[in-house]
Design a protein around this nucleic acid. Structure first.
Length: 625
DNA sequence: GTGAAGCACT
DNA sequence: CTCTGGGTGCTTCACC
């Protein structure tokens, strides 16, 4: 069935239609959108799809959460200004219709094009369909091409196609609460909207593909980001088991401690107040109790009450010590002990995070709902949270595989700094070796204090350190910090050269890039504002290092996932925390999985420096370290 | 709903 | 003399 012919160009714009001049809409552009609602129409469409090397896929659902989403329909396009929409009946009658499309969706031969394919693939995965074939994602392509711009499909259509798609608001209404579900919109309207989205995405691909080539970003797109999509789909789908009972018990303990601290604080303050309000707290500490000599203020004029400020006062004032106790307990309780059990999906009893693949400036992943990349590890109490992440069953353990010194090794490789490369080659402790150089003594005479300083310098260098920053973190004078940094650059001349050359190149081109071609644009690199320019220069140094580390672990994830699937293993990759991968390890596969994870992580992105990986396993995430 | 402050991780 | 390490997400307060 052919959908509505183009309306007269003079037609009155409907509410929600774009009023932007010079941009075309569906009404003015000839198009052939088809509704495939009957079994015969679907069969004909599927025969067409079977004969293709590539098609665009766009699904319509009732929810933006793949776990909760019900499928409303499937849209396809494989030629500009042409598209198909397949409405799906409500469950359970949707299943047999979806089943008709399984062969084309799961086909490894047919490439799938889409905008934010991770969502479409996730929804289909929860419906039992594992989409196969190469992927071209226009959201990811554009994020790599123009990281600073917006990446919404409607926006891209306007910029690259001079076209305004039907806004979803026209179908669902604009206000948040009363917003309708796509399931309740007449099928004809959904069909036009969905077929248009698939059509637009198909057209966008044709525009973006040559741009990737022109900017030298084919490697990062085709080898890193596109193959990573189905890997993240599977990791999110797997989730991880969290011991809710243990967290509830810990939460109760924390509540007790918070109550005791609260009582003590009110007594010492002479009055109750809202402990969670930095403003009220600042007034009590600095106006009422007059602690400290010259209270620091934040840039909005409030008293600073951050941990560093409070630590400086803690030795002299019990109320401050109790406040720090309260803060630590409150953070653990609200952010982790209370929140994680609520994040457990009832259908699986597991926690399913969402990874964002290209949201960060450097190429790292981010994780949300819940964030599994900031689970505590540093403090003893925080470790209780990590203990609650457990293997899926009795025949399993958690396996954690960490890159050792990934950023420092990458810095050594990018800078070709011979002394540092040799230190890594020899297997020496890198911070001790650094301390020996910086302080001009044999490695055997390096004290723990000297090593601590060298370690902080090593971390700081990758971030574009300043003497002030180092002095703050080490609790030493600015002069001493300056001397250490000067010594460092003298002993590692390659790193100074790398820093200078990277900043110079960034100034010429306006961007820096990673080994695979991931770019970070630095608009302030030529700024006359010293502070802004200094920040851009730090980013110029850091972005290739942090970004290449992200490239490396993403490549490793793709290869590990491929190998787990190819070998039919039951172990599963679950989490990524920037330089660490966490697995449900099926114990009969123990040796095989440890070997392949270690081998792939160390070789995924060959550089002039060897990579080292540390592995541990245990009955929980803490024990796996 | 939005921005700030604070803090968890790497 | 001034500013002052990269990258995230979540919770809470305070205000719109």
């Amino acid at each position: 069935m052919l959908l509505g012919e183009p309306e007269a160009a003079a037609a009155k714009p409907k509410p929600g239609a774009a009023a932007r001049p010079g941009l075309k809409t569906l009404a003015e552009v000839p198009h052939q959108y088809h509704l495939a609602a009957t079994a015969a129409e679907r069969a004909q469409l599927i025969r067409k799809l079977q004969g293709l090397d590539s098609f665009c896929l766009d699904i319509e659902t009732t929810s933006l959460d793949p776990k909760a989403a019900r499928l409303v329909g499937l849209a396809f396009s494989f030629a500009a200004h042409s598209g198909y929409y397949v409405p799906l009946p409500p469950a359970p009658r949707a299943a047999p219709v979806l089943e008709e499309f399984r062969p084309v969706l799961e086909s490894e031969r047919i490439e799938k094009v889409g905008h934010n394919l991770k969502f479409d693939l996730s929804v289909l995965k929860w419906q039992g369909i594992s989409v196969g074939g190469k992927l071209f994602d226009t959201l990811i392509a554009h994020s790599l091409l123009e990281p600073e711009m917006r990446h919404g499909m409607d926006h891209l259509a306007e910029v690259y196609l001079d076209y305004t798609p039907i806004p979803i608001g026209r179908l669902l209404g604009d206000s948040g609460a009363a917003r309708a579900s796509l399931a309740d919109v007449p099928v004809g309207q959904v069909a036009e909207y969905a077929a248009e989205d698939a059509d637009v995405t198909w057209q966008l691909r044709a525009v973006l593909e040559p741009l990737l080539k022109a900017r030298g970003q084919e490697r990062v797109f085709y080898e890193v980001e596109a193959p990573l999509i189905p890997v993240l789909v599977d990791m999110e789908y797997e989730g991880i088991k969290v011991d809710a009972a243990a967290l509830a018990e810990f939460a109760a303990q924390l509540a007790g401690e918070m109550g005791a601290a609260e009582k003590a604080i009110y007594r010492l303050a002479g009055t109750p107040f809202n402990l969670n309000s930095p403003r009220q707290l600042g007034q009590i500490l600095f106006d009422v109790l007059k602690l400290g000599a010259a209270p620091r203020k934040t840039r909005t004029g409030q008293y600073a009450t951050d941990e560093q400020t409070l630590q400086a006062l803690a030795a002299d004032h019990e109320i401050v010590r109790r406040l720090l106790e309260y803060r630590a307990a409150a953070k653990l309780k609200s952010t982790y002990a209370d929140a994680l059990p609520e994040a457990i999906w009832p259908g699986t009893g597991r926690v399913h995070t969402t990874y964002h693949q290209v949201m960060t400036a450097t190429g790292r992943l981010s994780s949300q709902n819940p964030n599994v990349q900031n689970i505590p590890i540093r403090t003893e109490r925080g470790q209780e949270i990590r203990k609650a992440f457990v293997p899926r069953g009795p025949e399993y353990r958690l396996l954690a595989a960490d890159y050792s010194q990934i950023e420092l090794r990458i810095l050594a490789a990018l800078s070709r700094e011979t002394v540092m490369l040799e230190a890594f080659r020899s297997g020496a402790d890198i911070h001790t070796a650094t301390a020996a150089r910086v302080f001009g003594i044999p490695p055997g005479e390096v004290t723990p204090e000297m090593r601590r300083k060298a370690k902080m310098v090593n971390f700081g260098i990758a971030y574009g350190i300043s003497a002030f920053g180092l002095s703050q973190r080490l609790g030493i004078s600015r002069a001493e910090a300056g001397t250490i940094i000067a010594q460092y650059f003298q002993q590692f001349p390659g790193i100074r050269r790398y820093r200078d050359e990277t900043i110079a190149r960034a100034r010429e081109r306006g961007y820096v890039e990673t080994v695979t071609g991931r770019r970070r644009y630095l608009r302030d690199i030529r700024s006359a504002n010293d502070t802004a320019r200094a920040a851009a220069e730090r980013n110029a140094i850091n972005a290739p290092i942090q970004g290449s580390a992200a490239d490396m672990i993403k490549l490793a994830m793709v290869a590990i996932h491929r190998e787990l699937v190819r070998r039919g293993l039951r172990s599963r990759m679950l989490l990524q925390v920037h330089d660490e991968l966490v697995f449900d390890l099926y114990l009969p596969e123990r040796e095989e999985v440890r070997r392949l994870v270690g081998e792939i992580m160390t070789t995924a992105l060959p550089l002039e420096v060897a990579m080292a990986v540390e592995m541990g396993e245990g009955e929980n995430w803490l024990a796996a370290h």
